[in-house]
Amino acid sequence: MGCKIHTPHFILLLAENSSLRCRLGLTVSRKVGNAVMRNRVKRNVREFFRREQSKFTNVVDFSVVAKRGAADLSHKDIFAELQNALEAKGHLNG
């Protein structure tokens, strides 16, 4: 069973997996910005995943696609947007 969640700056794709742990996939295209900006977005999403993976309700494959404007977000904004989207759909325990 999978789920697709749209936020203003990200598309989140979640799919249950049969392994024992959650996995992360990232797609940040050149539309987001230059290499420095793309790497910063990826670092922040990885850090969110690392901190929050124990709160996932199921073992899932978590794939994030960054949209235009994601590079303009601060660390806190990225965390808040991802957390709010996942909590609203019931995939993350508060």
Rank of each mutant, 00 (worst) to 15 (best):
M1Q: 05
M1K: 04
G2C: 09
C3N: 02
K4C: 03
I5D: 03
I5Q: 06
I5H: 01
T7F: 05
T7A: 11
F10L: 14
I11A: 13
L12E: 08
L12W: 01
L12S: 08
L13G: 04
A15M: 12
E16P: 01
E16F: 04
E16W: 02
N17Q: 12
N17M: 13
N17S: 12
S18E: 07
L20P: 00
L20C: 03
R21I: 14
C22I: 07
C22E: 06
R23I: 10
G25R: 12
T27S: 15
V28A: 15
V28G: 08
S29P: 00
R30H: 05
K31A: 09
V32H: 03
A35H: 09
M37N: 08
M37T: 09
V41C: 14
R43H: 09
N44R: 14
N44P: 01
V45Q: 07
V45A: 12
R46L: 14
E47S: 15
F49N: 10
R50N: 07
R50E: 08
R51Q: 14
R51T: 12
K55S: 08
F56Y: 05
F56P: 00
T57G: 02
N58W: 08
V60H: 00
D61P: 02
D61V: 11
F62D: 03
V65T: 07
G69K: 08
G69E: 11
A71G: 11
D72L: 15
D77V: 05
I78N: 04
F79I: 14
F79Q: 12
F79P: 00
A80W: 01
A80T: 02
A80D: 07
E81Y: 01
Q83W: 00
L86W: 01
K89R: 11
H91G: 09
G94L: 01
